[in-house]
Design a binder for these strands. Sequence first.
DNA 1: GAAATGTGTAACGTATCAGAGTACAGTTTT
DNA 2: AAAACTGTACTCTGATACGTTACACATTTC
Lengths: 106, 106
Amino acid sequence: MSRMFNPPHPGETLREDILPALGLTVTEAAEQLGVARPSLSRVLNGRAAISPEMALRLEQWLGVENGGRADLWLAEQASYDLWQARRSFKPKIKPAIAAAKNTTAA
Amino acid sequence: MSRMFNPPHPGETLREDILPALGLTVTEAAEQLGVARPSLSRVLNGRAAISPEMALRLEQWLGVENGGRADLWLAEQASYDLWQARRSFKPKIKPAIAAAKNTTAA
DNA sequence: GAAATGTGTAACGTATCAGAGTACAGTTTT
DNA sequence: AAAACTGTACTCTGATACGTTACACATTTC
């Protein structure tokens, strides 16, 4: 299942795999992507998320046929976000089934 | 492919399927979920997204064994967000391959 | 018909976040 | 040494989730 490991921030993949494969510096990549260098740097180091817009940039930049599908980038990000949320947010909610069985009770 | 139809906002599913199946009003659902009624209403009517926290609330409320998996709610939301982003955001970016072939040129 | 309940939504405040721009310190490359 | 690259902090703008409050409208119940 997808819940057993700490999913990497997608920026990590970008920094460790994509950029080296393309032989590009952060500065060059930011220029080609049309974003500010600090903005890309934050993504690469996990300080900012892959936004839908950034995912579209990556898709057009890398090409859908080269593993650059926007939905995959967003899925990775969502996986990461959910993992983080599970660590810091513990809702205490009565299951709807149980709640339904106790409509009159409190 | 997942790009051929307009994906519904996950709140729509919640409003049209889940709540009726449980026989709950919006007010009751909001109470059980531990969120304000206007907040849930915004989600149900597509005015607000399913946040990671909200996804966790739904998961604990509905139960993972009842189609309430947080990752599925988030995936639906991401699908919706991406679709919307494709409509309003058209990045003009030179593909990295082409850019690599023209490192010297401008 | 009046009261209660449910609903959508607007308005406002708070917190958070993406992104641009700027600046600076530290490192690597030339 | 000089130039380039990098991470990061700071500020500003715009957007968003959420709470609270308030309002208008509808539906239900007495």
